[in-house]
Amino acid sequence: MTPFIFSKKKLTCPIVYDTIPLNKPIGEMTFIVFDTETTGFRVNAEDRLLEIGAVLVEGKTVKEKITFQTFSNPNRLISREIAELTGITANDVEQAPSAFEAISAFFDFLGENKTDCLAGHYVSFDELVLRSELKRTGYSLKMPPSIDTLNLIGYLAPSYDMRDLERYAQIFGTRMYPRHRAVNDALTTAYLFVELLELLNDRKIDTWGELLRVSGSGGQVP
C-alpha cells in the first residue's frame, strides 16, 4: 500500500500502511476521523472546499480535546443555501488560507498525532474534495483507503441503505453534535465509528487486517 504521493512539488502525508502489521490490534491504533464542508456537491467542477474538521480516536476512545479545524477561502460566493446550512459566511473565509494551505495543515495534524488511518462517513466524497482541490494547484493525490463508516454499517447491518449520518447515529445510539460543521460532523462520526468497532469486536474482528477486510479495503491486503 502507498502513502499519499504528490507529483511535482514535495508534500507528503505521513500515513504509510506498509508499516502497520495486519495483526495489530485495533485497540492499539490511532485514527483521525475527518469531514469537509464545501460550497456544493460539484467539487470536481465549480464547487470548492470551505472547511476541514477532524478529531483523534485512539483505539476505541474519542479524544475530544484533540481536534483540527480550518476554514478555506473558496474564492467564490457562498450561496445563501449553503450559508444557512453550515453557518459559514463570507466573513469566515475572507482571510482563510487557500485550499492547498488548509490541506497541508491537515496533513501536518496527521503527522503530529502519528496517525495510522483516516476514517469518515461517506468518506469517498471528502477524499474527492481533497483530490479536486490539489489537482487545481497541479498536484496528483494518491491515497491509501480510508475506513468508511458506511461500509462498516453495510457489513454489520446490510439491510440499512442510506447515507444520513444523523439517522445512523440515532439508530446506533451514539452521541450527536449540531450538523453541517466539519468538526461537529467529525465528532458525531467518531462516536459512531467507535460504536461500530465495538460491534465488530463482538464478532471477533479486532485486528487491522480484519478491519480492512470488512471495510471493503480487503483488496488492498496482501
Rank of each mutant, 00 (worst) to 15 (best):
I32K: 01
V33G: 04
V33E: 00
F34V: 04
F34N: 06
D35Y: 05
T38R: 03
G40T: 04
G40H: 02
G40P: 04
F41S: 05
F41H: 03
R42Y: 14
V43G: 12
N44F: 12
N44H: 12
A45L: 14
A45V: 02
E46W: 13
D47P: 05
I52L: 12
A54S: 09
V55S: 07
L56E: 06
V57F: 07
G59I: 04
G59P: 08
K60V: 11
T61A: 13
T61E: 14
K63H: 10
K63E: 11
I66M: 04
T67Q: 12
T67C: 08
F68G: 02
Q69Y: 02
Q69L: 02
Q69P: 01
T70Q: 01
T70H: 00
F71Y: 15
F71L: 10
S72P: 06
N73S: 08
P74A: 12
N75L: 14
N75S: 12
R76W: 01
L77I: 12
S79F: 04
R80P: 03
R80N: 14
R80I: 14
E81L: 13
I82F: 08
I82H: 07
A83V: 06
E84N: 12
E84P: 02
I88W: 00
T89H: 10
A90D: 13
A90Y: 10
N91A: 15
D92M: 08
D92T: 03
D92E: 13
V93K: 05
V93H: 10
V93D: 04
E94F: 12
E94W: 06
Q95M: 08
A96W: 03
A96E: 09
P97I: 04
P97A: 08
S98L: 01
A99R: 07
A99N: 00
A99Y: 11
F100Q: 13
E101L: 13
E101P: 00
E101A: 15
A102M: 11
I103P: 07
I103K: 09
A105W: 08
